[in-house]
Amino acid sequence: MKNWMIGVTLACALPACVTINIYFPAAAAEKAADKIIDDVWQLKNGGEKPNVNSVEPAAPAK
């Protein structure tokens, strides 16, 4: 009886481990991609923004 239960537990636990290992972390991969792309294209450095859209701040006073 005991052996049978241990066998079932192991049979259930083993695929669980495999499932964890083959699971592709899509969200983590996107985060990693963003970080690398920002570095390669230097998107987060300097913070220089072209001031093209300067329409809104200069609202005419009534």
Partner: peptide, 20 residues
């Protein structure tokens, strides 16, 4: 117990960062 371990470990795996 088995089912909950299985589920939580999947969440842990999903939250982990990739080594870059």
């Amino acid at each position: 117990l088995l089912l909950s371990t299985l589920l939580t470990s999947q969440f842990v795996a999903a939250a982990a960062d990739l080594e870059v």
